[in-house]
Write a protein that binds this DNA or RNA. Structure first.
Lengths: 348, 348
DNA sequence: CTGAAAGCGCTTACAG
DNA sequence: CTGAAAGCGCTTACAG
């Protein structure tokens, strides 16, 4: 595939023009004033293009980056790319970035601030033009520091409220509010929430949305939020659910997709029947629910929008560094299902 | 975070030495003969390090790459990073690469040769030092061309037999052979296979393994391989399974993880009971099976080994370009489950 | 519309 | 053990 690697100079020599002109022709460069294209004679441009084609010319990315101080790479830092919610966002970002001629570097924090910090460092030294970050717990300081630089940053899924920054987040309160209403309509009263023992904004807002909705329905007295340990979900979930008295507690709202899957599995293992003994609303769908004897009601997050808004915002910021931060709040969709109706009226 | 970006020159000036020496000190460079380190006075080295630290010095990746002709980046081209099998491999590769101070670029082909070709092009022009590729259908020519360059390449999961190249693959024949034996032991006789309508090596070998095992058990007469359309799995699977007479066919072997999930769901929808009406062995586990009323027997692929062997091989090849190609065959593990036993003896 | 020249920040033989 | 110098391949004001 690579016999000889041709450079701009080779093309210039072959075309009998200067390297500069080749660069202009190849990049169709805009003139500094910003609007009209650098004027390269059409005929010359065509000749240059043809030679580039013939040589199978490939830009040297390192040289271009070094000189232009742009890498056309974007760093994306997620909690865990093997989590389906994040991997589907990753896939969308990858596709859109590809279209826009950007490459993407992925990293997973596993919810550890040290890893987040290390990834930011690595990505910056790799020269990324911008960063999309799902901030983990105790990352306020890190994000604040990062914002002192002039690198475009967009927070995804979670917020760091102490700092002015671009964000794309879900309307978490509304999501949980609606879930509670549905369970209430479905005939449940003592609705508890199963959440993570993690101090991140989306968790906090989901819990707040739950509590507010319970208050509003006059069910505040039996509202309760259970906290699961992120680092040992399975055990923690088993212990938590085993401690619940399902003759009293009649419904559960799970705060994230991973909790939903782990929770429903644990209920299954305990032999607690959904929706007869307990109503359930999950966060995001999952393959795990497809073989269950009931359809799962869930709060669906707009994965495509998350990816699109975050990516297009970073790319925009790369070209407009002094733009004021924007917070983009996305609306969830409620997907109905048997799991939220005490009386199983529909058939599966 | 970035007030001023310091360069090697700034450090040199501050330390009163030459930029070259700073570079040596920072890189702890090996001398050309290959063994002993470039001798930098310990005291000088320490002083340089201290200043670098103080300045919060970060290497400029572009400059380093341009000069050294190494990017410390590796391209990884998979079928689809949102498929759990590939996303878990991706995660492992990411982690190991990080440890080895490499970054990873991911791309998904969606089984389209055009996309594969485009990704290879992009990654090469981004300057990756090596490539890990899951080759898709009709990619022989592309891989052959690629091998004419001198870029280290390792094929993952699938082989392109026409070309001498490094590979990490599963022992697919053995995997399917064992699956068939288990189903046979489990009391099933008319075992059919559900595979993809795709000409890639692992599919071919899995089918061959299935057929050979059926022959060997004297069941060759009822052996049959169904082909599912990759681009519309759900419909194709529904049609395929609907056409099977389960009073005759008593077991199914699914050829990949995605087929397994789609297949079991389709059986569920058709109301065909596993393992009573039909025995099943899946390829890889899935969350989707966790809520099923039976445990799923499956062929487990060593995801960690796939990642490790492929990555360490590329990295090795980067430093030893003339090494002869090696084929690494990984052993699958059979995970037993109720789904492969006609008489459900164990309790769930 | 085109060319000559400088320089991005680093590495790397080469010479001492 | 250390320094001076060249150069990786490109872009980009600047000057015509």
């Amino acid at each position: 595939m690579i016999k000889k690697v041709y450079t701009i100079k080779d093309i210039a020599r072959e075309a009998g023009v200067s390297p500069s002109l080749v660069s202009f022709a190849l990049n169709n460069t805009l003139s500094p004033n910003g609007q009209k294209r650098y004027k390269v004679n059409d005929e010359t441009a065509r000749r240059i293009m043809a030679i580039a084609e013939k040589f199978n010319y490939k830009q040297n990315n390192a040289a271009r980056s070094l000189r232009s101080r742009r890498s056309r790479a974007i760093g994306v830092i997620l909690s865990d790319i093997s989590n389906p919610f994040f991997s589907s966002i990753a896939r969308r970002i990858e596709d859109e970035a590809f279209m826009a001629d950007y490459t993407v570097l992925f990293g997973s924090t596993d919810e550890k601030p040290e890893k987040l910090e290390r990834l930011i460092r690595t990505f910056i030294s790799k020269g990324v033009d911008g960063l999309i970050i799902v901030p983990c717990e105790r990352s306020e300081r890190i994000i604040e520091n990062l914002m002192e630089g002039n690198l475009p940053v967009v927070l995804l899924d979670r917020d760091v409220e102490s700092v002015a920054v671009n964000r794309v987040v879900l309307d978490n309160e509304a999501a949980c509010g609606e879930a509670i209403c549905k369970l209430h309509e479905g005939g449940y009263r003592c609705i508890e929430m199963v959440s993570y023992d993690m101090e991140v904004s989306n968790i906090a807002h989901r819990e707040a949305g739950y509590l507010a909705a319970m208050e509003q329905l006059g069910l505040g007295a039996c509202a309760h939020v259970h906290k699961i340990d992120y680092d040992q979900v399975e055990q923690s979930m088993a212990a938590c659910l085993a401690s619940i008295d399902f003759t009293k507690t009649d419904a559960l709202l799970f705060a994230t997709n991973s909790l939903s899957v782990a929770g429903v599995k644990a209920l299954h293992r305990l032999g607690v029947e959904i929706p007869r003994q307990v109503g359930v609303v999950a966060f995001d769908g999952s393959e795990a629910f497809d073989l269950a004897p009931f359809s799962m009601a869930c709060i669906k997050q707009p994965v495509g929008q998350f990816a699109h808004e975050a990516l297009s915002r970073v790319i925009y910021l790369i070209d407009h560094p002094d733009e004021a931060p924007v917070t983009h709040v996305l609306a969830p969709t409620f997907v109905d299902g048997d799991s939220a109706y005490r009386k199983k009226s529909e058939n599966k």
